[in-house]
Design a protein around this nucleic acid. Structure first.
Lengths: 191, 191
DNA sequence: TCCATCATGTAAACAGTTACATGATTGC
DNA sequence: GCAATCATGTAACTGTTTACATGATGGA
């Protein structure tokens, strides 16, 4: 029984990716983040390589074999402890932080809207609604792609992002109504 | 015209708080974060004091006067440049990051649910739904309080947090349905 | 008076970003 | 064979957290 320290969300994701895809080089993991449609993390080299080294030192990852090419890369796979740590990170969670509200830069700004002039405020709201409406289309497409691509839980995740976006739009429309700001059309989606 | 570097969201919040409340000591700003119902930031001393010092060096805050007691505290207020910087941070925003989807630790975990056994998966979903339903009540109370307390935009912000939470619950219920997991009652709010 | 809490900080650790360096591989 | 890019890292910087130190204040 080692230190029993938990995983960060990024560490959990990395273990999850390696578990789901089989042994990977750090670069393959990076690509997963870089290509993701929900880029919470940049997948920067400076984040991933040290993280993998850290997990290897903690014996949650182990070097499985070299890639074979001349670049000296290594494929990493989960150890039994890594598998346990992943399940514990994933599993029914106790920390309230996971269930609580999350930061939203737009919402943060809204609490200070009183400081703007009515005209700028109106621009703020209409602009935000337009942007979010556009973003929502991306999210819908991503969810569709995830559904087509087979992975059920990947779909649920995208779907969650979509519903969150939809709620934001509803919120902005409600604000606009309360502030007597006309929003340019765009019927609210009813998916 | 100085460096023209933007503000982080925490810096913007600090300027916004000081602007809204009038000249403050750093500790008063800290309390604002510590008491907030949406604790994105801890308001730790190690974050706020250096941040205020930074903003003072950038001439966005200035020392207005000492508090008068023997603890050597100082009240800080916005400079004209600070006011401009605040408005620019706040004002109709261009960066896509403000409009894009945000990290959600629960959603992150959902994309890896395939790794769990059906039983654990079911626990995950029901547990999450219960927790979020509880959290939603806090959010509703906070929104009500904000409405009563007068500040219109503070209310809209709370309301946004509530709607986001509601969307999360809807999402979980949808997942539960798709996975044939019965959720313990609790009619979905229709606020 | 004494003790808990308020208030003002500082120091170290940490996780993630940007930027850089360097060699391998691939497409033309 | 040359240029773009892939792949594997490292280094410096930044912002935030946790933990600590220290004195002031207020209530018992």
């Amino acid at each position: 029984m080692s230190k029993a320290k938990g995983l960060t969300d990024l560490e959990g994701c990395v273990l999850g990716i390696i578990r789901a895809k089989g042994a990977c080089t750090p670069y393959v993991v990076r690509r997963e983040f870089m290509q993701s449609t929900t880029p919470y993390w940049s997948g920067s080299a400076g984040a991933i390589y040290p993280l993998v080294a850290r997990l290897r030192r903690r014996r949650l990852l182990r070097a499985v074999r070299p890639t074979g090419d001349l670049r000296g890369g290594t494929l990493y796979g989960l150890t039994a402890a890594g598998d346990r740590a992943l399940r514990q990170w994933l599993g029914p969670v106790l920390e309230p932080a996971v269930y609580a509200s999350h930061p939203d830069p737009l919402r943060t700004r809204v609490s200070f809207l009183a400081l703007l002039t009515p005209a700028v405020r109106a621009t703020f709201v209409t602009e935000a609604a337009t942007r979010i409406r556009a973003h929502l289309e991306d999210l819908a497409r991503a969810a569709e792609a995830a559904q087509a691509c087979g992975d059920r839980y990947e779909f649920h995740a995208s779907r969650g992002a979509y519903l969150a976006g939809e709620a934001r739009l509803t919120w902005l429309e409600e604000m606009a109504r309360a502030m007597d700001i006309p929003l340019p059309g765009g019927s609210t989606s009813t998916s």
